[in-house]
Design a binder for these strands. Structure first.
Lengths: 247, 247
DNA sequence: CGGTCTCTTGACCTCTGTCAAGTAGAGTGG
DNA sequence: CCACTCTACTTGACAGAGGTCAAGAGACCG
């Protein structure tokens, strides 16, 4: 039986790690005891920029954020989506320069842990080091599924797949509250996530609504029928590695 | 000054790690001393399958391999490409089940290291542990660039970008020999890499040839003009994190 | 030297993009 | 509570990149 996480600012982050890794009470306490500050960003603010070097490990406390890259021609692609509880930049512990942009999708609250403090933690606690790697590997696995999504699914399945993924990822850290009441992205952002155009997102959303998979009210979009969505996307959650425990 | 790698079966793997991480002579010796066996696969053979659990860490000695996922509808997407010197499955040290298929692109020679031996090595040598993580992170960075490629570049730029990437990745481990003399993939495999169809790859290859970026003879394709390719793809190699040393 | 697997090519189709104009929410200030 | 404004969303007409189908030509292999 997994020890219960303690309550505190870093609680959500802890819960995220516990969703895929086992940590002793001591390890959990060490995480909860990390010195940290808080920082708020508005929607669309840059949190980190390509080319930067970072000395902080930001953790998403509330709101959504995403990683983004752009072509010279102005095409923009969102390459990862982060939800509350997610650490946003483990990479800077290991690699000098940041290779993508990190942006706030909604207004966000961040916890900022000094990279040096986090490094110390990881060096002294193997189970935490391991949890960090598992976290990195799961993000990479999600990236591979996105490649399949962009390369081989049509607009309808692509959008349905994304909605399914968000649904299940939110389940893991927020067992009780905060589900996908309202999709927090504009149609333009959905387009940048899925390699489509805003106009086509609009048409596809309308089609999802027509099929009863999604409900809309004003600008809001919410999941209407997860079973229908799963069917449309042929969604399987194995790539999310939920319940990796004892692996 | 980086100590010279020692010569042996694991030499190429060592050189790959040294291309992005610093390792002491002791660390290098410990890697070279890893007990291992060899295994050969034919082109198209599966090396690992989705759902498997692996107790070995395969390292690519010669030939090319790729990670692949498929949709229920039969769409196939190659989500990573591995070249000689690349370790093919660090992930199984940390995560229970494999979430994609690993297949030989050409006939390949693998070095098989027992996962338990590799884990021991990583536990006792922090610099090696770090190098493994950097390796994982660089693969993830490549995945993000591929997402941009699939989502926001047209067929011509997409193909040009892939060829540029292969060119520079091969430079890193094979400073002297083995460059991209002949692209080792069929047009069908290129299609699966780029989210296109074989027919369209054919047309695009023809266009690249017309522009002098690529040379062809019989079935063979080779890079004719890397400068032209870079221009077509707007290629920048920062995402490959070459020379990450002292990071 | 026959068989098989790629590659080529042309005709045609369709999904998604482009352009442009109009509508409707959400926030602001009066 | 009502303008006013800004942004996001809608919609239709049209365009175009890339997909599909199918047949034929080359390569490579035993």
């Amino acid at each position: 039986m997994q020890p219960r996480p303690m309550v505190g600012t870093l609680d959500l982050f802890l819960r995220k790690l516990l969703s895929h890794s086992l940590l002793s009470t001591d390890d959990q306490a060490a995480i909860a005891a990390l010195p940290h500050s808080r920082r708020r960003f508005d929607a669309n603010d840059y949190i980190l920029r390509e080319g930067d070097q970072s000395d902080a490990c930001p953790i998403l406390l509330s709101g959504f954020a995403y990683r983004q890259k752009a072509t010279e021609e102005g095409g923009r692609q969102i390459v990862a989506l982060k939800i509350p509880g997610d650490a946003l930049d483990f990479q800077s512990m290991y690699v000098r320069t940041i290779d993508h942009n990190l942006q706030a999708l909604t207004p966000v609250d961040l916890i900022i842990v000094a990279l040096s403090d986090f490094e110390k933690l990881v060096r002294s606690r193997p189970a935490i080091a391991r949890a960090v790697i598992v976290d990195i590997l799961i993000e990479a696995s999600i990236g591979r599924e996105w490649l399949l999504n962009l390369g081989r699914r049509n607009a309808l399945a692509r959008l349905a797949h994304l909605l399914c993924e968000m649904h299940y990822r939110l389940l893991d850290t927020h067992a009780e509250g905060l589900d996908l009441r309202d999709v927090p992205m504009t149609q333009e952002q959905l387009a940048d996530l899925l390699g489509l155009t805003p106009v086509h997102i609009n048409r596809t959303l309308k089609e999802l609504e027509r099929r009863g998979a999604v409900a809309r009210h004003g600008r809001g979009v919410r999941i209407g029928n997860i079973v229908a969505l799963r069917a449309l996307a042929n969604f399987s959650d194995t790539y999310l590695h939920r319940n990796n425990h004892d692996g």
